[in-house]
């Protein structure tokens, strides 16, 4: 009996040691350790042994089985790890390969429109809206633009009827808001405007952002402060603002607003044509005549207004050389504006 046990143990350990796969190991397990396996058979053989020796041999068999089990489980975990490793190795990927997930992009005009709007919303301005097909009275008359002003010509304005036109500026929204609301009024109105021009720096349709602030004691100085803050946020904190006198019938005093060149910071470069300044917008103190025409007391209230050309701002900010590119809608162009 002893011999039998010894040879079973030896045989078993050899088998386990020679085994190379979990599958094989499992077969060995069944052969040796299962209910009908070799050890179980040994136990059955105990019945042929005298009773007083049974406990002794039973113990030996159990010890032998447990020794084999130990070796078995060690081997099992080694094999298991080996096989896992092999499996993972098979799963190896070239991580430099890619499956493209396509992200779209905004039109730069809308990015800039959004950026500018957000800056002014942060300063307490609210968004307002107005019609693109506008009455003559809002686009011209109430803005103090004289009857014979060339801006009213067929060459400068798209007409639908004598009194209906495509707005040439967002300033008409000023009047519409003034008619409805009481000061303080602090709005911006981004939108499409139209003029019959078509070349590298003019498009028959373009975008403006109109700003209007009406309250007691609003001055030209406040306008400058507001635009300085805007310029710093839109370009960078080193940007400065220069006012130049200009003329618009609906503001008085009127100014052209130049920003220090975002490329060269005033040293002079191609972008600013060596002037160090970029012309970006027109602005001014709302002409008291416009306030009175809208039924506001110009003795009590004053305000400022400005109009920013969105395409122009986009061209400056992103270095786009031709305005028409933004209306060409080539994927390869739009793709560049994902941020």
């Amino acid at each position: 009996m002893k011999e039998k046990i010894k040879s079973l143990v030896k045989n078993s350990l050899e088998q386990i040691s020679d085994c190379n796969s979990l599958k094989e190991l499992e077969l060995i397990k069944i052969e040796i350790l299962s209910k009908n396996g070799s050890f179980a058979n040994l136990m059955k053989d105990l019945k042929n042994i005298p009773n007083e020796q049974k406990p002794f041999y039973g113990k030996i068999i159990n010890e032998a089985k447990s020794e084999v089990l130990n070796v078995f489980s060690t081997k099992s975990s080694i094999l298991n790890e080996q096989e896992q490793n092999a499996k993972e190795k098979k799963e190896a990927l070239d991580v430099t390969l890619s499956k493209k997930y396509n992200i779209g992009a905004f039109n730069p005009i809308n990015i800039v429109k959004q950026d500018i709007s957000n800056i002014f919303i942060g300063m307490g301005f609210s968004l307002a809206d107005g019609p693109e097909i506008e009455l003559k009275k809002y686009n011209f008359d109430l803005l103090n633009i004289p009857e014979d002003h060339p801006a009213r010509d067929f060459t400068d304005t798209f007409y639908i009827t004598e009194n209906l036109l495509l707005r040439t500026q967002t300033s008409g929204v000023q009047v519409r808001v003034l008619e409805k609301e009481k000061p303080p009024i602090k709005i911006i109105c981004p939108g499409k405007v139209y003029r019959p021009d078509d070349d590298a720096t003019h498009s028959p349709m373009f975008h403006q952002i109109e700003g209007l602030y009406i309250d007691e004691n609003v001055t030209l100085k406040d306008l400058k402060k507001t635009l300085e803050e805007f310029a710093k946020l839109f370009f960078d904190k080193h940007t400065t603002v220069r006012f130049r006198p200009s003329f618009f019938p609906f503001t008085e005093p009127s100014v052209e607003v130049d920003l220090s060149c975002s490329m060269c910071h005033g040293k002079g470069c191609n972008l600013c044509k060596n002037t160090g300044w970029l012309e970006l917008l027109g602005a001014g103190v709302v002409n008291p005549v416009v306030l009175e025409k809208s039924g506001l007391d110009s003795k009590k209230y004053s305000g400022f207004a400005f109009g920013i050309g969105v395409e122009r701002a986009a061209m400056i900010k992103y270095g786009i050389p031709d305005m028409r590119l933004m209306f060409d809608n080539d994927v390869r162009f739009i793709k560049q504006f994902k941020f």
Binding site: N107, F327, I334
Partner: peptide, 18 residues
């Protein structure tokens, strides 16, 4: 709407109103 469109791979275009 616009953000969702972009993240689904759409490109935003701008064409004339006429």
């Amino acid at each position: 709407i616009r953000n969702l469109a972009i993240y689904n791979g759409l490109y935003e275009i701008m064409t004339y109103s006429f």
